[in-house]
């Protein structure tokens, strides 16, 4: 697998909520085993676009996606695409940690259970252990796997959610502001974890912190809610290497945003 392989490819994607466009004409390639960050002022459609990548928007009444999004060349909005498989390949971590009201073990085991990823109990134990190790949580919880997941601290809960996501062995992990509800130390840990995970997974992260984008991301996309009248035909203002976006942005609005002029 070459380093620069395209994992997901988006072409002319529009997303509308009951007719109101939230995402307009966005095209980008998401590279395999790279961290891609979405930045931009709030309400510009970052979450909307992220959720379009694993069809989480399907559950929203009146949400409509047009354009083409492919995963390894397969159209994920194809009629016969089963979202169950798609989301196994493209997992998701949410802004607020949302562990299930069950034990830590059961939280991680839920995904493998519904996807049938194991034959024996010890295989499942293995998956749970590997996932918790992968999420850097194992040492902290290995003695209390039967305790409720909701009893952990916020940062631990979020890492539990990450462990839960990698337990189904996804290719792509989508993270929607995963650290915005956490304190600086927990945020740091999550960022380190993202670095580590990037060795094995393709990661797309929405963040409102430009410092965070610079710390974790290889690629950065700047979104902006353009008024419909404007010349630009897209909410994706600029997309490129993180270094270039922050040090040498092409678009004025990008420059203003990364310099902290607005948002």
């Amino acid at each position: 697998m070459s380093e620069d392989q395209v994992r997901m490819s988006c072409r002319n994607v529009n997303v509308a909520y009951s007719g109101n466009l939230a995402i307009k004409n966005v095209s980008m390639d998401i590279m395999s085993k790279k961290v891609t960050a979405f930045i931009g002022p709030s309400g510009c459609g970052k979450s909307t676009f992220l959720r379009a990548l694993n069809r989480m928007n399907d559950t929203v009444d009146g949400c409509e996606v047009t354009g083409e999004i492919t995963l390894d060349g397969n159209d994920i909005y194809a009629k016969d695409m089963d979202t169950v498989f798609l989301r196994q390949w493209v997992g998701m971590v949410f802004q607020k940690p949302n562990p299930f009201p069950k034990s830590i073990y059961e939280n991680v085991a839920y995904g493998p259970r519904i996807h049938g990823l194991f034959r024996t109990k010890s295989e499942l134990d293995d998956i749970v252990e590997q996932s918790l190790i992968g999420a850097g949580l194992w040492d902290e919880v290995k003695d209390r796997l039967r305790n409720p997941g909701t009893g952990l601290s916020g940062g631990q809960q979020q890492r539990l959610c990450i462990a839960r996501a990698i337990a189904v062995n996804p290719e792509v992990i989508l993270m929607d502001e995963p650290a915005s509800a956490l304190d600086p130390i927990a945020t740091r840990k999550i960022e380190e974890l993202i670095h580590k995970l990037a060795q094995n997974y393709t990661i797309v992260i929405v963040t409102h912190s430009m410092a965070q984008a610079q710390r974790v991301a290889d690629k950065t996309a700047f979104f902006y809610a353009v008024p419909l009248t404007e010349q630009d035909n897209s909410n994706l203002i600029e997309f490129g290497d993180t270094k270039q976006i922050f040090d040498n942005p092409v678009d004025d609005r990008t420059r203003q945003y990364v310099e902290g002029a607005f948002g």
Partner: peptide, 14 residues
């Protein structure tokens, strides 16, 4: 395990 089959090679769990 593809986008249309699971680990068993089926379109759904047995």
């Amino acid at each position: 395990r593809s986008l249309s089959t699971n680990n068993y090679g089926l379109a759904a769990l047995p």
